[in-house]
Design a protein around this nucleic acid. Structure first.
Lengths: 118, 118
DNA sequence: CCCATATTCAACCGGCAAGTTAAGCAAAGC
DNA sequence: GCTTTGCTTAACTTGCCGGTTGAATATGGG
């Protein structure tokens, strides 16, 4: 189970479901067994189990069995790629694309050897 | 059309589609007409039109008609809520600048035309 | 060993999302 | 005024998604 870097597709569509976001919120506080995760929701255990599978496939949680209990724990780095992707859009103000580019050229010393800018 | 604060559901599921993310990437460079947005994709204009509608409903872009052309422009604040939500999980530092750089270099291949490759 | 607990698997269903084509509108151009 | 250009709507197909139920699997306890 190399869990090879999940796609943004997987991550964002995992996040698109309110139940799954709620689960992530719960796991933020503490690791939980599947049954306990399911408790507050008004849907079958199987449904929650599927949701957890989706989250795991997206690399947002990890499930590890200890005894007959499967513990679900947040995988904090799972959100990193998505977060980084989003920051690319949100970071700059309305339409300061020029400013942004200038910032980039300064902030990226290793962009291309030298930033000889006439 | 007050465009009342779109839900996280709407935002994340809008972002879950690679075509839509690509569109956002294009609009990051410049405002575009619908037809021009559709050009690089191998799907019908109608399909792209729908994608744009989804993005607009999610508050990620705005479409305004001028003449017979409808201009699509990024709505940078549209990502803010989602970003904030995600930061809530950021037990990891807000945004790793290294990651940010890497993202930028991939996402903005042609952000400027002057200093091209030799 | 047998039973209870914990979780998934399998088969199924309704609904929605994404794509298609074809028709419909609106604004410009000749 | 008719045609062309730009875009949306409508109607339809297809496939996936989220849910259900019921059986299957694994583990721990008495």
């Amino acid at each position: 189970m190399p869990a090879q870097q999940p796609s943004l597709d997987a991550i964002f569509s995992a996040l698109a479901d309110p139940t799954r976001r709620a689960i992530l919120g719960m796991l933020l506080e503490d690791d939980m067994a599947v049954t306990d995760v399911a408790a507050p929701f008004e849907m079958s255990l199987a449904a929650i189990s599927k949701h957890l599978a989706v989250l795991a496939a997206a690399g947002l949680i990890r499930q590890e069995r200890r005894g007959r209990i499967i513990w679900c724990k947040l995988e904090p780095d799972g959100l990193r790629n998505a977060s980084v992707w989003m920051q690319g859009f949100g970071q700059f103000e309305p339409v300061d694309l020029d400013d942004f580019e200038r910032f980039l050229r300064e902030a990226l010393p290793l962009a291309d050897g030298d930033d000889a800018q006439p």
